[in-house]
Design a protein around this nucleic acid. Structure first.
Length: 429
RNA sequence: GCCGCCGUAGCUUAGUUGGUAGAGCACCCGGCUGUUAACCGGGCGGUCGUCGGUUCAAAUCCGUCCAGCGGCGCCA
């Protein structure tokens, strides 16, 4: 048994091969029939002729439908007329399943394809995106493993909010109301006290009623937390991590990027270090670029888009005003009113893919912040305990893996970057 | 939550100043020895999202509800 990709490099030319997979295209012209077969490695055209196969078998072959499963034996032959440069002269075949008509044909709308996602995932576009996604997930883990981090896991059913109260998915837990995790950050902070440097890749759930091309209600959140790290230390790991993931995709998925018509030159410039811009400086710069932002304004999606087009690589925005971020961020002792945090904005208008920074590690400072944000300290007793017993400076980050894949692939919507998107109006398939 | 857009055959859609619905794909039948989401001939397929209103007459104008998409906010 051969993989299709192995028939396309010339080494099998003139030899007998057997491949199996699914019918990607089928056309017949009387005594000839052309089948483009697909497997996970690629596509190749196979040619059946009545003269070779006989009337009966030819009829069997010609009447097959898109996505029927079949194995084909034949002779590999180089032919410029074939879609991938080589084709297979069919000497024999075995049908595994003869399909009813496949629901997906050409000219399908986005909504229909989302309903048929379980079948649309077989398309060449989705296959390429999923291969790139696989590379990205592997590269993320590999990077942190080789930089002294341990992989760990937090719970997905939680009783504590990380960010705020309004965006939680509630569910019943033996009579008690609990919620789905919005982030594993607090649990990573716990694990940090034994493992020092930790990372996780887990789903996060947000019940925000977002209706944009960059939001999912269930997304894959890649988070890290590192003991003794400053904000700057954390950014250094992150930029190397992003550079590594992009370089791994460029190495392993060049053909996939080409199939997606991604401008590869836009990815080749993604090399550390990335620019770091303080929020206050960004406000000044943005006014030179014609935006009317004043200190204290949050960066909206339009502003992010406008900012990122001035750079050919991702850019860190640091030192936001305290009021713009949540309670656990550590204020900068050297710059009152500002916090030691960073967002990473992906270029070409894709915008925020990482949020991170230094965490408050002083007990009283944290307790004051909890009070100031009108939160109940009892809900956070274990998080507060971390500041009670051997507290240390530390930093962390959260990366939206789907947003990363969305940007690397240059996709229209983040829904294309995940196999089974969950949005405000989609829970199937 | 706020703002905008859309809904016509299984799918993608055309439909003029209101005059009674047209195409491509898919599907079925037939043809074709080099097709590239082939081509040629024939066939099947519509409560024009729902309910109501205006009118001699509504896919078209008005209102309602339903469904979807996008933008903002929130964030990754």
């Amino acid at each position: 048994m051969n993989k299709i990709v192995d028939l396309l490099n010339g080494s099998m030319n003139g030899k007998i091969a057997e491949i199996r997979g699914w019918i990607y295209r089928i056309r017949s012209s009387g005594a000839l029939c052309f089948i483009v077969l697909r497997d996970s490695s690629g596509i190749i055209q196979a040619v059946g002729s009545r003269n070779t196969l006989g009337e009966e078998k030819m009829k069997d072959l010609v009447s097959l439908t898109i996505e029927s499963s079949i194995s084909i034996t034949g002779t590999v032959r180089q032919d410029p007329r074939a879609i991938t440069g080589y084709e297979l002269d069919i000497s024999d075949f075995r049908i595994y399943q003869r399909n009813e008509n496949f629901p997906i044909t050409k000219d399908k709308g986005e909504e229909f394809l989302l309903d048929m996602r379980h079948l649309w995932l077989r398309s060449r576009e989705m296959t390429s995106i999923m291969k790139i996604r696989s590379t990205a997930f592997k590269a993320f883990s590999d990077f942190f493993y080789s930089n002294g981090y341990y992989q760990t896991q937090g719970p997905m059913m939680v009783s504590t909010a990380t960010e705020g109260g309004s965006t939680l998915f509630k569910l019943q837990f033996f009579g008690e109301e609990v919620s789905l995790a919005q982030s594993s950050q607090f649990y990573l902070e716990v694990m940090m006290f034994s493992l020092e440097k930790v990372f996780t890749i887990a789903p996060s759930f947000r019940a925000e009623k977002s209706r944009t091309r960059r939001h999912l209600t269930e997304y894959w959140h890649a988070e890290g937390e590192a003991a003794w790290y400053s904000n700057e230390d954390m950014m250094k790991d992150e930029e190397k991590m992003i550079e590594y993931i992009v370089s791994e995709v460029l190495k392993s998925n060049r053909e996939d990027l080409e199939l997606l018509k991604r401008d590869i030159s836009k990815l080749e410039t993604v090399k550390a270090p990335f620019p770091r811009i303080r929020y206050s400086d960004l406000i000044k710069m943005s006014n030179e670029w014609g935006m009317s932002l004043k200190y204290g304004d949050d960066l909206g999606a339009d502003e992010e888009r406008e900012i990122t087009v001035h750079f050919d690589k991702p850019v860190f925005v640091t030192h936001y005003p305290e009021a713009l971020k949540t309670f656990y961020h550590r204020p900068d002792p050297e710059s009152p009113g500002e916090i030691l945090c960073h967002d990473l904005l992906a270029p070409e208008g894709f915008g925020e893919i990482i949020g991170g920074g230094e965490r408050i590690w002083d007990l009283n400072e944290l307790l004051e912040k909890i009070k100031k944000y009108d939160l109940n300290p009892d809900d956070y007793y274990w998080y507060v305990d971390l500041r009670r017993y051997g507290s240390i400076p530390h930093s962390g980050f959260g990366l939206g893996m789907d947003r990363l894949v969305w940007w690397i692939c240059g996709l229209e919507s983040i829904r294309e970057a995940i196999p089974f998107p969950r949005t405000i109006r989609r829970i199937k398939p």
